[in-house]
C-alpha cells in the first residue's frame, strides 16, 4: 500500500482534477444505472468537454450510449460539419432528430419569433426524440454557474412523464449518491458539468487540447447588426431588413445555437490562449449572446418546467 508517511500533508487534488473525476463518476453512474441513456450533444464547448470526459470514463471501451443532436435546421453550417466529423472520428453512434411537424408548419426564427421557434424546434423536438427512442436518461452539458435556476438543479434531475421539471419537488442529493430510480415514462436529465464554471471549461479545453468548432475563434465573417446584436449571415435564408448592411468583421461566438439567434462578439482571439485571455478580462457574461434568455425574466425556469434542457 502506498501509505503516506506520517506528518506529511498529502497534496489536494487540483480544482480541474477534482472536477474531472466528479464528472467521470457521474457519467459512469448513469451508464451503470439506466437501461437506455443518451448523451445530448449540442456541438458547443460544454458538449465537447462532456463528450471528452465520456471518452475517458469508459476507456478503453467506447461510451455505452449514443449521441443525440436536436437539429433545428438553423444551426451554423460549421457546427453540422464539426458534429459529423466528431462522431465519425470517435466512432460513436449519432442520432439526429428534427421536429418534422415544425418544419412542415414553416417554423423559423425570423417569422415565428425566437420564443416559438425555440419551444417547437428545440423543446418539443427534444421531447419527441426522447419519447421516440424511449431514453430513460439524457446527459446535458449545463452548468450551475450559467443561470440562477440552474444553480438549484440537481446533478440527477428528475423529469415526470411529460418531461416537466418541478423545482419545488426535487430529490435531495447527498454525497456522490445519485438516485437513479424512475418509473416507466419518467426520466432523468444528468448534468456531469454541474460544478464547472465557464473559466474551468476553457482551461480544461486548453489543457486537454479538445477540438472546438471554428466559430469560437475569431475570423472575418459577414455580419449584420440587428436588435443590438451581430448576427452572422450563415446562409441565404436570412433576408436583410431595410437599412441593414452586411459587414465583414473580425468576430467570434461565445456560445453556439441557431445562427439567427446567436450574437457574435467582435474579437481578435484566434487561438485558445487568446480566448482564455479574453474570458479573463471579459465584462460580459456568455448568455448575453443568446436572444432566447432575454424574452422574459426568469425565462429559463419557465422553459425548464416545460422540458427545455
Amino acid at each position: 500500500m502506498n501509505m503516506q508517511s506520517p506528518g506529511m500533508t498529502p497534496e489536494r487534488l487540483s480544482n480541474l482534477k477534482r472536477l474531472e473525476a466528479e464528472s467521470i463518476h457521474i457519467i459512469r453512474e448513469v451508464a451503470a444505472e439506466f437501461s437506455n441513456p443518451v448523451m445530448l450533444y449540442s456541438i458547443g464547448k460544454d458538449s465537447g468537454v462532456m463528450l471528452h470526459l465520456a471518452m475517458k470514463a469508459f476507456y478503453p471501451s467506447k461510451p455505452p450510449f449514443p449521441l443525440l443532436h436536436v437539429d433545428t435546421t438553423w444551426k451554423f453550417r460549421d457546427m453540422i460539419t464539426f458534429r459529423d466529423e466528431t462522431a465519425a472520428n470517435l466512432g460513436l453512434d449519432l442520432i439526429v432528430h428534427t421536429n418534422q411537424e415544425g418544419v412542415e408548419k414553416g417554423i423559423n426564427p425570423f417569422d415565428s419569433g425566437s420564443s416559438v421557434h425555440t419551444h417547437i424546434m428545440k423543446t418539443e423536438a427534444l421531447k419527441q426524440a426522447l419519447n421516440k427512442y424511449g431514453f430513460d436518461a439524457a446527459f446535458g452539458g449545463a452548468r450551475r454557474d450559467e443561470e440562477k435556476s440552474r444553480a438549484k438543479e440537481r446533478v440527477f434531475s428528475f423529469r415526470d412523464g411529460n418531461h416537466g421539471w418541478d423545482p419545488k419537488n426535487q430529490r435531495p442529493e447527498l454525497w456522490n449518491l445519485y438516485n437513479a430510480r424512475v418509473a416507466k415514462g419518467e426520466s432523468i436529465r444528468a448534468f456531469p458539468l454541474s460544478n464547472w464554471t465557464e473559466l474551468d471549461i476553457w482551461q480544461y479545453i486548453l489543457t486537454e487540447n479538445i477540438p472546438m468548432v471554428p466559430l469560437y475563434f475569431a475570423a472575418k465573417r459577414p455580419v449584420v447588426e440587428r436588435d443590438g446584436m451581430l448576427i452572422m449571415l450563415d446562409d441565404d435564408r436570412m433576408k436583410l431588413l431595410p437599412g441593414e448592411t452586411v459587414q465583414e468583421k473580425m468576430v467570434r461566438f461565445r456560445t453556439l445555437g441557431c445562427y439567427p439567434l446567436t450574437g457574435a462578439i467582435e474579437s481578435d482571439a484566434e487561438t485558445l490562449p487568446a480566448i482564455v485571455r479574453e474570458m479573463l478580462i471579459a465584462r460580459t457574461s456568455e448568455r448575453q449572446g443568446r436572444l432566447i434568455d432575454k424574452d422574459e425574466s426568469a425565462s429559463m425556469e419557465k422553459k425548464k418546467r416545460e422540458g427545455y434542457f
Partner: peptide, 27 residues
C-alpha cells in the same frame, strides 16, 4: 493578474497563467 498587463506575449502569459491555475485547488 499579470496577464492583463501583458503586451509582449499575451499567449505565453495565458499559458503560464493556466499552468498556474492547474495547481489551484477547490474548497
Amino acid at each position: 493578474m499579470s496577464i492583463l498587463e501583458t503586451t509582449h506575449s499575451a499567449e505565453d502569459a495565458v499559458k503560464d497563467y493556466v499552468v498556474a491555475q492547474e495547481s489551484k485547488d477547490q474548497l
